[in-house]
Each structure stands twice: as structure tokens, then as C-alpha cells.
Amino acid sequence: MKNFKINHRNKSGLEVLDLQGELDAHTASQLEDVLKNLINSNKSNIIVNFKDLDYIASAGLGVFMAYIEDVRSIGGDIKLTNMNDKVYNVFDLLGFPTLYDIFEDEHHAIDKFINDNE
């Protein structure tokens, strides 16, 4: 069943992943594959846009936990943006906001990347 989709685009030299649908223990592997591919091709400035993501379970958060160190060790980051309240609540319950950059809108994440890389 196709209840999850990822779209990859480039913006201002950054990799943006648009998530759509429901991210659970079944669909998390798709996100994992896309992230792995980016990291393997040394693309480490990554924004994940949650605007069209309706639902997330902890397996989805697990993917970000597994790869953030790899990305940061090659000088990049994974910044998360545009979460709806319910999705944000899950990240919040697990204490992610102190460990990850989470922005209300994608352009804040772009600004942060540009400022940090200057």
C-alpha cells in the first residue's frame, strides 16, 4: 500500500526531502534508503520537510537517530521543518528539540545552513 512518499529536490545547494503520508515501522526503510544514498554521495546538508507528513511513529524518529552522527561527522546536518502539531509532539515527547534543529518553516533551515557555512 502506498501510504508514504519521499520527494527529493535541491534548493540553494541543499538537499531537501519532502515527506508525504504516514511514516511508521514499515515505511521507515524507504526514508532510510534515501538518507543512506545521500550520505554515501557525500551530500550532507539535508533538510527534511514534514509539511505533508500526516503521521509519524518512533521508527521514523529512529532513522534520524541512526544517521545524524554520520552526517554531522562529515560537516553536515539534518534539519527538520514544517511539522504539524501532532508530529512535533512525538519529537517533543522524546526530547528531540534539544538535539536537532527543528524549524517552523523550510526557509529558516536554509538560512541557518547558509549562516553556519559562511
Binding site: S58, L61, G62, V90
Partner: peptide, 17 residues
């Protein structure tokens, strides 16, 4: 979570939730 990220470990989150 902080320690798990450093060790690239996942899990344990479901029960907490």
C-alpha cells in the same frame, strides 16, 4: 536519546510513548 544517538542505537522509544 542523546546517548543513543552517539551510539547510533535506536529503540526503547515505543514504551516511553
Amino acid at each position: 536519546i542523546k546517548q543513543q544517538i552517539a551510539k547510533k542505537k535506536r529503540g526503547g522509544m515505543g514504551i516511553h510513548l
